[in-house]
Design a protein around this nucleic acid. Structure first.
Lengths: 189, 189
DNA sequence: GTCTATAGCTTGATAGAC
DNA sequence: GTCTATCAAGCTATAGAC
């Protein structure tokens, strides 16, 4: 059905068009292959997102806003999905599912820690009178909206009767930063 | 590790303290057991949430607000987790993971459709000049924040260095409706 | 590097005694 | 209803020819 145990090495080999045993030749075991798949693209996303956040921080100077920070944090991800095509879209769905397992969550933290910390540091500067707790719970809601988008479950398609489509990343990109930034600003009211 | 294929019937039988074959006696097969686990509590949550939304609609009259609707939609879930203890907390985590699989997404729609439709109808009345698209994308962000909370991955614990805890449902309940309602209101600006 | 062959184990599920 | 015994199938992984 799904998940690490829902896909066999035979499935993978068949899809890739190679012999099953070759997977064992190139990777130590199934778990090693899994991690390799995760890591390869993780470094690309991480570097781009970190660069976007640093660029925003440099350009905005002392006029940092929550919405600006969220644009830098989120838009890079959606741009990768929009411009990178199927591989990156699938990788997003992969990450979203990984993030919902305890083991996967550790992988997420391990690889994206610097990106998150940079975002949080900008948010704190943009919201100097906010408690750490409010900042982090706000970040928690950001992750939820992001992951639910990347997961591309098709739920919004069904619920909306086709008005919204799970793979319409431009539609999400247009709304998400504005939506979440307003949420942050409302926490202190 | 996780998911439908990550748990064996032997695991379940051992945890419950019965013999493996009894699972086959009481349920048609593994999938049937899975659905039974899902359905039993789903009806309880669905009825409570629907009742909460209908009560809010009746009490608010013509003064419907987004935040009021979201409180009715969300608070019932968190109250179940807070008052229902471990079984309901675990069930929340179960649902969050189920919702991220395509097959599970269909189950979610099948069981919670009336709740979602009721929320959407109230939101439309509270935001009469909004497009369906904006309403549904807003709902999409709501689901993300909710599911990420129920999933209880422990990520926010790590990222915040212990300042926030994944199982602190009261802390989420205090913030989530206000946060998301502000997001909705910002979409039209 | 790529294949065949196969080991060794776990899985979901059933038959049948009690 | 509950147990023992067991099956057929599928899994990851390895050994070894080429």
């Amino acid at each position: 059905m799904n998940g690490f145990n829902g896909v066999t090495l035979r499935d993978v080999a068949l899809r890739v068009g190679i012999h099953t045993t070759l997977l064992h030749y190139y990777f130590k075991d199934k778990h090693d292959l899994f991690e390799a798949v995760y890591k390869r693209r993780a470094s690309v996303t991480r570097d781009r997102r970190l660069a976007a956040l640093e660029q925003y921080e440099a350009e905005a100077g002392d006029c940092l806003t929550v919405e600006g920070a969220l644009h830098a944090f989120l838009d890079t991800v959606f741009d990768l999905c929009i411009e990178g095509g199927e591989p990156w879209v699938n990788y997003g769905a992969f990450c979203a599912r990984v993030s919902y397992s305890h083991e996967g969550e550790a992988m997420m933290v391990a690889h994206f820690e610097p990106v998150v910390l940079k975002l949080v540091s900008i948010l704190k500067r943009a919201l100097p009178d906010y408690s750490d707790e409010d900042i982090f719970w706000g970040y928690h809601f950001v992750t939820g909206a992001l992951m639910n988008t990347l997961a591309r479950t098709g739920r919004i398609d069904q619920v909306s009767g086709g008005i919204c489509r799970s793979d319409d990343f431009p539609a999400v990109k247009k709304r998400i930063a504005k939506f979440l930034a307003a949420g942050f600003l409302a926490l202190k009211q």
